[in-house]
Computed example of a mutant assay.
Amino acid sequence: MATRKVAPAVAAGCTMVLKPAKLTPLTAQYFAKTMLDAGLPAGVLNVVASSSASGISGPLLKDSRLRKVSFTGSTPVGKRLLADAAQNVLRTSMELGGIAPFIVFEDADLDKAVEGAMAAKMRNMGEACTAANRFLVQESVAQEFTQKFAAAMAALTTGRGTDPATQVGPLIDAGARDDVHALVTAAVDAGATAVTGGGPVDGPGYFYQPTVLGNVPNNAAILGQEIFGPVAPVTTFGTEEDAIRLANASEYGLASYLYSRDFNRLLRVADQIEFGMVGFNAGVTSNAAAPFGGVKQSGLGREGGTEAIAEYTTTQYIGINDPYTD
């Protein structure tokens, strides 16, 4: 996350204050040391870690020297930062929440769709803003897709990183694990079926079973908020119009994934769904050379590509009086 912000800021000639997440401060410190080792002058990148986010962001946002705020995190926190940034009319980039739909049409290659679903769901155990959060599958292929997807998820090995066989590690803390389980429990109570997984892993640590939920009702809470865990809820749709309506039935619009053999359909649906990024038959879409960002309450601005540098610069118009016209 830090490199997405620091790299374009350095390219634009900015100095920076980086406040890492309170649960992961050491990687930011190591990154800053790496930048120093690479030749970045001391004082250009300054890391300030704290157990209190507001304790750092509050004074910074009030400082008249600040010109730009770039934030990756939840939408509620992003809204508070936007409100505070408005006091000094600060430029902002907000990379916020996402409830990415993964749409599988009946003409899709289901084996490739399952492969893409695994990539879109299980990157960092599902703890990613771009992780597929809602699997919308056309009714005629829903059962086959769900069974194949569940088999692939069930085959994963959960364990500690010290074990070379591990494919699924722990969630960030106990609260995250408990939040994931609460969503799963509520979905099952509402009528969903745990096709595989469905609960925490016994023993020490914050592990959760790779889980696929079938027959998830469209009004289930798990379809309306970020899961941030290895849980894949599958729901169905009838027509292409239904898929578009369900995909757009969210205040978020970051990443989305479409699977179909019909390229015209992919283009048609992409034109109608409200998301900043769309993957065609691909479970991983982000690229450092391409703009990354969302619409609606998934944020403002872009990271990556030339668009990222533009976020740290301003346009200045200079009108010159031609001396040869006097």
Rank of each mutant, 00 (worst) to 15 (best):
K5P: 04
G43L: 06
A113S: 10
Q138T: 08
R245Q: 13
G199Y: 12
G161Q: 11
K62M: 10
A100Q: 07
V195N: 04
A28I: 08
G159T: 04
D189C: 00
P200C: 11
V77W: 06
A128E: 00
T3P: 08
A176P: 01
V17Q: 11
G98R: 01
A194F: 06
V188T: 01
G238T: 15
A288K: 15
A186N: 00
G199C: 08
G238Y: 07
S286E: 07
A128I: 06
G73C: 05
A310W: 02
A187R: 01
V212R: 01
A42W: 01
L254A: 03
V89A: 05
A249D: 14
A247W: 02
A232W: 00
N218L: 13
F71C: 05
A117L: 03
A270M: 06
T235K: 07
F275V: 02
N281P: 07
T162D: 12
V188C: 00
Q316D: 12
R177M: 10
S50H: 09
L171S: 08
S298N: 12
A108P: 09
L258S: 03
D107Y: 15
Q167W: 05
A187E: 02
V77Y: 13
Q297D: 10
P59K: 05
R160K: 13
G205Q: 01
Q316K: 15
S140C: 15
G97C: 01
R302V: 08
A11K: 03
T27N: 11
G276N: 08
F280A: 03
A38C: 09
L267V: 14
G161D: 10
D111G: 14
A7N: 03
Q87C: 09
N215G: 12
D262G: 10
N46A: 11
Q138V: 14
S54Y: 15
A21Y: 12
A131R: 04
L223C: 04
K121H: 00
G197I: 08
Y208G: 04
R80C: 12
G203R: 11
M118A: 13
M1Q: 03
K148D: 09
S260V: 12
L246W: 14
L82N: 13
Y317M: 10
P217V: 06
E311R: 02
G159E: 05
M125T: 13
M94F: 00
A151K: 13
G169D: 04
Y208C: 03
L82R: 15
A308K: 01
G238L: 15
K296M: 03
V184F: 03
T24A: 10
L156G: 07
A194R: 09
G319E: 09
D163C: 14
P233C: 02
R134F: 00
A255Q: 09
D37M: 09
T34Y: 14
V212M: 00
R245Y: 04
A2K: 07
D271F: 09
L156R: 15
G175R: 10
T306I: 13
D242G: 03
A9H: 01
I318C: 04
T285V: 14
L300W: 07
A113G: 10
F105P: 04
A165P: 07
G203H: 05
A220V: 01
S140L: 13
S54C: 15
P291G: 07
A83I: 11
L45K: 07
D37E: 14
P323C: 09
G126F: 03
T193G: 07
S57V: 14
F31G: 13
R134M: 00
G13D: 13
D107F: 06
V77P: 09
V180S: 02
L258W: 02
T285K: 02
R265K: 11
A131H: 04
D109I: 12
